[in-house]
């Protein structure tokens, strides 16, 4: 029975407990950054930043909307990046949890192929090990009945981890509650992913890849639906997307 995470962005305060907690659990080294006129830092996901809170601000009539999006791997049900892999065991799916795991063998994969096959622009290359890196749902913790570190760190109730069936129920209930004040609220790609984002505004306002971006893939085969694309039934055509900033 797969596990899932609901990320309710309407409760996220961008305290970045998840971003830092993830880094600490993984013992990732610090990355040199610059202030570029935004609180979002590092600018993008990276080999030592597999969880990143994205910030974007919008003027909406008289009011300001400041949107936060704690970005990481969606742990897709059908795994497009796996279909882009050459080796059998470089990208594995843990049956018990549904976690998509990149093993050390990803060092032998073509990074560009793997990256472009992800509709959420998640995989990153560790230049030192040549491994491809992303969130592993804290599989080590989960196997020991501990919450993934991002979920554990979140005090706002913005992240809930559990059985997929339970999470789907909770997500549906939260959507109803949030839609009362935010009619545009939606659950992003709920049917296809195990990390489900609840957003109050149009997903593109949060992040270019908040929902699956199949534009490149569909350009290659205009007859393909996004659903098919997500099911991994396409060749990894999507070109490398530039880093999204906010």
């Amino acid at each position: 029975m797969p596990k899932a995470i609901l990320i309710d962005t309407t409760r996220c305060t961008a305290c970045r407990g998840c971003q830092v907690g993830c880094k600490e659990w993984k013992n990732y080294p610090a990355v040199a950054t610059k202030q570029r006129g935004t609180h979002q830092n590092p600018p993008d996901l990276g080999p030592y930043n597999v969880k990143l809170v994205r910030f974007s601000e919008h003027q909406d009539g008289d009011s300001v909307k400041w949107l936060f999006f704690p970005d990481a791997c969606r742990h897709c049900l059908e795994v497009p990046c796996k279909s882009g892999a050459e080796l059998e065991d470089s990208i594995i799916v843990d049956k018990e949890t549904g976690a998509v795991i990149y093993t050390e063998k990803t060092a032998k994969e073509n990074f560009e192929t793997i990256k472009s096959s992800c509709p959420y622009d998640i995989p990153r290359l560790d230049p030192k090990t040549r491994r491809i890196v992303k969130c592993d749902m804290c599989i080590d913790r989960v196997k020991k009945n501990l919450l993934p570190m991002c979920v554990k760190s979140c005090a706002m109730g913005a992240m809930t981890f559990g059985e997929r069936s339970d999470i789907l129920k909770i997500a549906a209930e939260r959507l109803v509650a949030v839609q009362k004040e935010n009619p545009k609220a939606q659950l992003c790609d709920m049917e296809n992913v195990n990390v489900i984002y609840l957003v109050a505004e149009a997903p593109s306002k949060y992040h270019k890849f908040a929902v699956a971006d199949a534009s490149d893939a569909m350009k290659g085969d205009p007859g393909m639906t996004r659903q098919q694309m997500l099911a991994g039934k396409f060749a990894p055509l999507r070109k490398l997307a530039g880093p999204a900033q906010g």
């Binding site: 990732y28 202030q35 570029r36 930043n49």
Partner: peptide, 29 residues
């Protein structure tokens, strides 16, 4: 000295309105 902290907020900044920035010819960053 915190690993993920200095990388998240690395440098001194000043928050200002676009109107003031325009008056002073200042661009973001």
């Amino acid at each position: 000295n915190g690993n993920g902290l200095l990388e998240a907020e690395p440098q001194q900044y000043i928050e200002m309105s676009p109107q003031l920035a325009a008056e002073r010819g200042i661009k973001n960053g």
